[in-house]
Amino acid sequence: MISFMLNGTKVVSTARANEPLLNVLRNEFHLSGVKCGCNEGECGACAVILDGRLANSCMVALGSIQGSKVITIEGYRTTERFTVLDMAYASVGAVQCGFCIPGMILASECILAKNPNPTRAEIQAGISGNLCRCTGYNAIVAAIGIAAKEGQGLW
């Protein structure tokens, strides 16, 4: 049994230690915000915040997170920071199909938590592990910049 904090609540999983965290989050805890896009750690659709860092949950073995803190979009969406990012994304039309957006939002959080006033180049580097087939990234980069300005003092 592996215990860890999931969105602020201590949980225990009985899945195999080598089971990908993505599968445990979706199948055992019924969290649909993490998506299986590539299953190779290349697309970011399965992104979570693991102990304060962005991680592709498809590449994380459950057994490696004993005692860790995992935040999914379901947990993050209840925060004031999410509200700022959500409004910024909406204001520039940065959401189209929505498949990549949970991972993009969590990547945005990690960018702004590390540097609350990032440059365009820093934003681009920060989302480089997340693929989006719809937006062309310009709106997403703009949204993160807007959130940095609107959310001053939050990050």
Rank of each mutant, 00 (worst) to 15 (best):
K35T: 01
G8L: 11
N23W: 15
P102F: 01
Y89W: 15
A147G: 09
G126I: 06
G103V: 09
V48K: 06
Q124G: 00
L131I: 14
F4L: 14
C58I: 04
T83P: 00
L85K: 02
I49N: 02
S57H: 03
G126K: 07
I2R: 09
I140G: 03
F4C: 08
F99A: 03
A147H: 01
Q124R: 14
G41S: 08
A121P: 03
L50K: 07
V95Y: 01
V12W: 04
L6Y: 08
F29P: 05
E19V: 13
A107E: 03
E74M: 10
T14F: 13
A147C: 12
I71L: 13
G8D: 12
G136F: 12
G153A: 10
A147F: 10
G41T: 05
I144M: 09
N27G: 13
A17L: 14
N39D: 15
I2C: 05
C132H: 08
L21C: 06
S32E: 14
C36V: 04
A17N: 11
M104V: 12
S32D: 11
L25W: 09
L85H: 02
N130C: 08
C36N: 15
K69Y: 07
G145M: 07
G126R: 07
A143E: 04
V141I: 15
G93S: 09
V70M: 06
A148L: 07
F4R: 07
Y137A: 02
T119C: 09
V92C: 15
G75M: 07
D86S: 10
R81I: 05
V95I: 15
I140P: 01
E19K: 14
V70I: 13
K114Q: 13
G126V: 10
G98M: 10
N138Q: 15
E19Q: 15
S128C: 14
I73V: 11
V11E: 12
M59G: 00
S3A: 14
G145Y: 07
R16Q: 13
N27T: 14
K69A: 14
N7H: 11
V48A: 10
I146V: 13
C134R: 04
R120E: 15
E109Q: 15
V24N: 05
R133L: 06
I127D: 04
Y76K: 00
R16D: 13
I144W: 00
V141Q: 02
V92W: 01
F29M: 08
